[in-house]
């Protein structure tokens, strides 16, 4: 039973159909990489899934529900941009708690949940009061995951997650990210332009071309 089902999605700008009856299914816990040249429509597809752009036709179902007309803040998606997008003005604790704080959950509940999440992503408690500018790359990644998990997302959306990582450690960081996502058993879409990153991270790789997705394999 797939968690994400995208059917016959069309999005055009003027006469140009960026997405042309695009289909995609993602199973529970599956990591899917979307590749393609810049300007080919990866961002458009991402924006449609997130809810920033309205598709012209077709449907997006997440966990059995059509999300058309559902605002982004109600879609329960975890968007993670390049460099993880931690809030620089908040501590680790407040970053992780963000989704619960804005839902006005009681303090004790938030604190307990933050502790659980730290445990899940294997971060030490001592890190909680630190500013996010004092974290290592690996710690930043885990904080971003914990923050996303706090709102129990149905789907992760990673936007070029490794492009800010230097080339020497890229494979290692990618493998760790994959391990972490897999452990959570939440499906993920990874947008990337780098074939190596796609191979490190994903179970299935698609290439976006001519408005549709083609399954592809990348040789080492």
């Amino acid at each position: 039973m797939p968690i994400v089902v995208i059917t016959q999605l069309v999005k055009a700008y003027g006469a140009h159909r960026v997405l042309d009856r695009l289909n995609l299914e993602i199973a529970a816990g599956e990591i899917v990489a979307l590749m393609g040249k810049s300007g080919v429509g990866k961002t458009t597809l991402l924006s449609c899934i997130l809810g920033f752009e309205k598709p012209d036709s077709g449907s997006i179902e997440i966990d059995g529900y059509d999300v058309a007309g559902v605002a982004i803040e109600e879609r329960r998606l975890a968007y993670v941009p390049q460099d993880y997008g931690l809030f620089p003005h908040l501590s680790v604790r407040d970053n992780i708690a963000f989704g619960m704080t804005i839902r006005k959950k009681p303090h004790t509940e938030i604190d307990q949940r933050v502790q659980e999440l730290l445990h899940t992503v294997e971060l030490p408690k001592i890190i909680l009061n630190r500013g996010v500018d004092r974290l290592s790359g690996g710690e930043r990644q885990r904080v971003a995951l914990a923050r996303a998990l706090a709102v129990e997302p149905k789907l992760f959306l990673f936007d070029e997650p490794l492009s800010a990582v230097d080339i020497e450690t890229r494979g290692e960081v990618g493998a760790e990210l994959r391990r972490n996502i897999k452990k959570l058993n939440i499906p993920a879409i990874v947008i990337t332009h780098d074939p190596n990153d796609a191979r490190t991270l994903a179970d299935t790789i698609y290439r976006l071309e001519g408005g549709v997705l083609q399954k592809t394999t990348i040789k080492a």
Partner: peptide
């Protein structure tokens, strides 16, 4: 451009929350 506001939205923040908890403090 950093898309941090998008993260906040995906975590459940509406426009008011994005402005007063992300944009203004940052």
């Amino acid at each position: 451009a950093s898309k941090i506001d998008l993260v906040a939205r995906s975590l459940g923040a509406n426009t008011y929350t994005v402005i007063f908890r992300v944009l203004v403090p940052m």
